[in-house]
Design a protein around this nucleic acid. Sequence first.
DNA 1: TCCGTCTCGGAAAGCCCTTTCCGGAAGGGG
DNA 2: CCCCTTCCGGAAAGGGCTTTCCGAGACGGA
Lengths: 362, 362
Amino acid sequence: MTTARESSTGRRTDQDGPTVVRRSGPVLLSEVAAHAGVSLATASRVLSGSRSVGEPHRGRVLAAAQELRYTPNAQAQAVARGASNVVGLIIHDVLDPYFSSIAGGVMREVEERELVVFLASTHSDVDRELEFVQTMRSHRVRALIICGSRTTDRAHNERLVHELEGYAAAGGQAAVISQDRLGTHAVVPQNRAGARELGRELVRLGHRRFAVLAGPRGLLASRDRLTGFREGLAAEGVDTADLQVLHGDFTREGGERLAAQLVAEGSTATCVFAVNDVMALGALAAFRAAGVRVPEDVSLAGFDDIAPLRDVVPSLTSVRLPLAEMGARAAQLALDTEPQTTSQTVRVDAEVVLRDSTRRLA
Amino acid sequence: MTTARESSTGRRTDQDGPTVVRRSGPVLLSEVAAHAGVSLATASRVLSGSRSVGEPHRGRVLAAAQELRYTPNAQAQAVARGASNVVGLIIHDVLDPYFSSIAGGVMREVEERELVVFLASTHSDVDRELEFVQTMRSHRVRALIICGSRTTDRAHNERLVHELEGYAAAGGQAAVISQDRLGTHAVVPQNRAGARELGRELVRLGHRRFAVLAGPRGLLASRDRLTGFREGLAAEGVDTADLQVLHGDFTREGGERLAAQLVAEGSTATCVFAVNDVMALGALAAFRAAGVRVPEDVSLAGFDDIAPLRDVVPSLTSVRLPLAEMGARAAQLALDTEPQTTSQTVRVDAEVVLRDSTRRLA
DNA sequence: TCCGTCTCGGAAAGCCCTTTCCGGAAGGGG
DNA sequence: CCCCTTCCGGAAAGGGCTTTCCGAGACGGA
């Protein structure tokens, strides 16, 4: 197309006539049109393929676009078309494997559809979550996926619903993960059932005295898992009245702290259930530091089955959640559903995976 | 402002006159202006604060905006202003802790400036990388951060440089991590020096026979680490002519495979250096599966010091890279530098961290 | 040969904002 | 008291694109 000699700088056309002052900034469609000697409309039609254009013109526009290195202004396109091709994703933290797995699932779906994703991380700050919904709405994202945590904070929930209504009213589609009753599509893990099953399994292994490292009191995910766990124990005939429950914050440091506290208090529990794996990992480290062996001295179980679990010793018993699929599912709900459809809720099963960190008592 | 009775639906004005058909879609600035009884320009000025507006008008616009739940169209603003407030970030994979740590650093900086980030993951596909640069350029991101890997693929490098030139010519700022000579700002870790120091330390521990689990042959990061490692060994008087080098792909599975191969071949190496931690983790798993004890039977060292390392037993020797800071630094370069400044290269030090996976030989 | 039907190119309106430009009103100095 | 400045509101001209609307030419059928 261009000869080898000339192609390196690619400004072949600048050579005929006096040197043209290179306007800074992006190349415009109008320049492409002018360069090709056609109207703006024709250039637009060729490049966005909205209508067929005769071969002579078509070829010239394409050539001009390539030569000028034209890149359409996606923002302007979005404004003109009244529809954007970006998807918003709000999570707590990219560094947390739970969220990054989900994000991975979302991104897979998004990229398959040739869309882009806006990623925002709230660092568990509910106000930032609200702000980001605003931001996403402002950017007119075609779909919004929120992977947050349902809390018992009524005021906040109402504001969130309000924001989401605003977003929906503006024509956006939303899906939330691990939350529901928000008036949007939802993907909810069976926290309670999973924890219940875990509880039963642990009792079957011979455990009777448990301690639970729970999350923040206001988080429904933590609550559900705790409730389910209690039900599981009860179902196997264990009295849960004196179940030891410590409340933390879903972080590794929190897990570490609570486990250390357990050790310091001289807890008699033979099995510790951390309501999420990140805390379980923290607890494992704390136990190790304190010289408490897992599972010989105490059994330990987590929840979520996050990826890094594969590399810890002993391998951690957990309740498996198909995180990437959850993300993908949420993306599908938000992207493939007709705007006016009533919102769907997808429940995903949680599956107990017994590993080496929980031992059978004699 | 509105009475309790009327405020719930917020369509007070719909009540005078026949029911107005509620236009679907977002609320427009013109509607706010009309509602407030001022001109479009005034409404714009109040809401974007570009010029002072007298109190009576100001208050009415604010009230109207709130009542109508107006959210400005960020895309249109970007077009009109000729500047967007989004930052592009291209990484290989969100699930890889190396990349998510960097992403975390980038996002911290970005969010501090009230900007948003477009996240794209290439899954190590160089063509996708190129495509994404295009996409980001198309979205007119204010800054672009690429955390890729410099390869020896000349053709690809040229195309990448070309794309980046296009991006820069269009007025964008770019920073790359772990790459250089791309004509952009760069943050480059001292791979070679770090690996060299690691090599020396390992020899000082008494090791003489090494095996290296390298990355893809074409990746400069892998190459540099290998070269540095060789230099370190040589500096301590170890002959590196017969150094055993296996090439993998920087993934966990790759590390697993290579380590298994090492075991199968009956390698006599007393120490294995995986050029990145992810492969080291894979190797650790493979060794464990094969009954090879670390560090009793073989010592193992990695590179990067990714976060999940803290939970592994034995704790892994590695070369620490300040990943989050690297991301943050790149973001700063791209965001805080004047557009026409010559590109800067920031070198970041790598620090050897000896842990339990490498033992001292008798 | 003539007319209806297509196909295709261009002009211009429109997408939702921002910002410049103007004009009028208010305020201060001579 | 007048003029010059300052302040502020509105009209309108952008920003870069899509799409509607028209008209002109090409083509086929009668």
